[in-house]
Design a protein around this nucleic acid. Structure first.
Lengths: 173, 173, 173, 173
DNA sequence: CCATAACCGAGACGGTACGTCTGGTCTTCAA
DNA sequence: TTGAAGACCAGACGTACCGTCTCGGTTATGG
């Protein structure tokens, strides 16, 4: 759909708050009414664009070297590098802002950051391999890991160079 | 200041997105210009109200029984109970939304949730007491703990009854 | 045609300005396209409904007592009484508004008010009977008579009780 | 007021139906809200513009040669010439359409066409001079005269060259 | 002790975007 | 082949707030 494409394009350049229905309609060459016919609100459009994977650049994959700690650090570092690239600085904040407005986006936020497909499975593998405790609550572990990455990014402070390593060490001590 | 009081009142009832400068001005019995004279934007007003502790009900204190794990679970549970109360359901989301807009709010978000004053010190105490590893990155640990609480709340799903215990276990395994 | 029936029904209840093609289509149980296939615009539909005599209640007939003055007064009075009935108050205004948009309606407005069929012939008869001057411009006379009735009705003022008599006297002095 | 000026300008070029609040606002260099603050609808703006005499070019004056019939014919002819000028063709229709929507405009329509100030007084003078019957209902006479001019103009037919003379003759026979 | 400034409330202003409504065109599909 | 259904682009509607900008009317201070 041209609407979702346009949404993705504008989301990348302007961020979530400056996204407007009228802007999307103009960018997509579509009338406002067409958008309102199919979506109930700005956040619903964004949620669909998120599902179609049009909002984010390619998300990094968790490597699998056998060393779960090193793998997580590497993955987290590539996440940090990704949002550190110019043009991506407001990306996480925009996503979180969208999630605050729309439960669907919240639900998909984890998926959108590529977690289910990559991190959870890697961690479950590590649990089965005996590298992590057998009773580790994986879902909560992942929430904490991602939350530990997202929360500080709301402060817009330059992250310390070793923050990936420190964050993983905070969780795997 | 009447403005900050009004902001706190409206924030509680309407959430951050439905907060308007005009609404605050009317609620406070003040003219818009007066608000713009002292604050640069809606988010700046909210940031100040946050500092003055007018946005949140009393935050729970971390108990100190000597058992860091039990203490954290108890604290996390009381946090969960707090936002589960009727009228408080959008509170965390509103705060996060505000933080997305304003770096100051982001910076103070941790403080606002009472963390520095209570959790960090408790954890540092546990580190010194040898209950936690000496090289634990406390800041990142706290981020992960709070992030693990905040992130799922964006999904608006009823939290599992034992989520506090599971979250702490994910971090202290 | 169900369309013209529906138009007549809606015209009576809502007046011309609040008439919409979509409303007519819905009322007639017909699709918009069907209307546009057969008529070029809203005013064309109304023009046809006017021709089919579906817009107006029965128009009064000019009596023929031999006294042209008394006949015109009686006829004018019955016209006034007609539009004074509840539900008919906006009728003349609606017709005039439609005539402003569509020349066809303008052309038929005179006919619609029953003039050609009744007044003109009655007046011509009076001319031939010597009751009115032989060189009386009948068409203009009728325009003035009807115009003298229509124009004041745009003001929505309660007409004076003897306005019929006065108007005829203004023309036949 | 810039709004009324702009209204007059657009009314002349586009006619009443194509007048839009947004168009007026843009033409006047004013925000829509400013218009809505002071007027309740498009027709209210037009009514005010009409009062301020911004909608119509200069209206002709009734000459006073002593011969009431010749004077009325001359005046009526100049009215006809006025609306026959290019650019003025929809003027009467637009005014009538506006009057259909708004009682105020209807009330002022007579004044707007310059009648009170010119025709009525001239006719009253003629009555006093004995040129017209003493009991002539002046108001109705003027309505019929103007109505006889307005009604045919809704048909958009080229008026006959001697229509002024014929119309006056229809009234003064 | 009063002039003068700082600050206030009120609210109009030019704007942007909202979400709705209707106009007129176009395509699909069942009868 | 018609017509009901309804999606589509376009654009005006009237509303809500934005952030800026006068306006007078208090305080309240300091020359």
């Amino acid at each position: 759909m041209a609407v979702l494409d346009a949404t993705g394009r504008l989301f990348a350049t302007q961020g979530y708050d400056h996204l407007t229905i009228e802007g999307i309609a103009a960018e997509a060459g579509v009338s406002k009414q067409t958008i309102y016919r199919w979506w109930s609100s700005k956040s619903a459009v964004v949620a669909d664009a998120l599902i179609e994977d049009l909002l984010l650049p390619d998300h990094p994959v968790v490597p699998d070297t056998g060393d779960i700690r090193a793998d997580l650090i590497a993955w987290m570092q590539s996440l940090i590098d990704l949002v550190a690239q110019p043009g991506n600085d407001g990306l996480v904040r925009s996503l979180v802002a969208a999630a605050c407005e729309n439960p669907d986006i919240g639900t998909r936020l984890n998926d959108a950051l590529g977690i289910t497909a990559t991190v959870s499975t890697r961690i479950e593998a590590a649990v089965e391999a005996g590298q992590l405790p057998a009773d580790l609550p994986v879902k909560e572990f992942v929430s904490a890991l991602v939350g530990g990455f997202v929360l500080p990014s709301l402060e817009r402070t330059e992250p310390a160079p070793d923050v990936a390593e420190r964050l993983v060490r905070a969780l795997l001590h």
